[in-house]
Amino acid sequence: MMTGALVAVALPSFIASLVEFVEMLTIVLAVGATRGWRSALAGTAAGIVLLALLVAAFGPALAYAPLDALKIVLGALLVFFGLRWLRKAALRYAGVIPMGDEAGRFARTASQLSGGATPASLDGAGALTAFNGVVLEGLEIVFIVIAVGASSRNLAVAAIGAGIAGLIIVALALVLHKPLARVPANALKFVVGLMLSSLGTLWLGEGLGVAWPGDDLSAFGIGAAYLAASAIGIGLCRKRSSSHAGSVSA
């Protein structure tokens, strides 16, 4: 039971962080390649310090909040957050919006920063771009770590899950020196969306005093229901888009 709880906390935190670290890394690599590694690393370090301060400020403080209230607030926020990821991933699978493209993101950021590169010295625009990228992508990691960790009273485990993901991505970046275009980001986002929506619904329900059959195990049932709801949504979108294409061509 204890191991299961740890997995339920560490796994969503790990997978979600993996996806966000890939996006963060793409921006940092683009800055490093165009404006020099000193600027990229300075912006990254400043961003990481700010994110760590946010976790240190809000994480331990939440340990003193009443658990039921915490489960309602953070559970609801996890539901909002998870359903947003799930909806976006479903629309990508249905072919409504394009799949995430790390190589394209790298090219866009690099072209925005190209010109007047000064690789040897610290470049303000480059450092700021890296800082923004790290903070904006990192905010999602911070939220997941705090929400999943605080709701289950396992902040350290959630933080370790995110930390391992960060180490893996940094190690891959050091070896590859290019954006990680082959990571199945949409599939991972779909899985994380399912996990966070299920855990959020479970904790929100507990906070509201509902009776889940099977207690914590009902998270699997809730996840299956969300999976079915997404599959129905994707199926309906595909059906309508094929009938729409048919009526346009006719």
Partner: peptide
């Protein structure tokens, strides 16, 4: 709670498309 949120998700996906 669970089924209602699932229904809202499906509607949102279809509406988004």
């Amino acid at each position: 709670l669970a089924l209602g949120l699932c229904g809202i998700l499906t509607l949102s996906i279809v509406r988004g498309a």
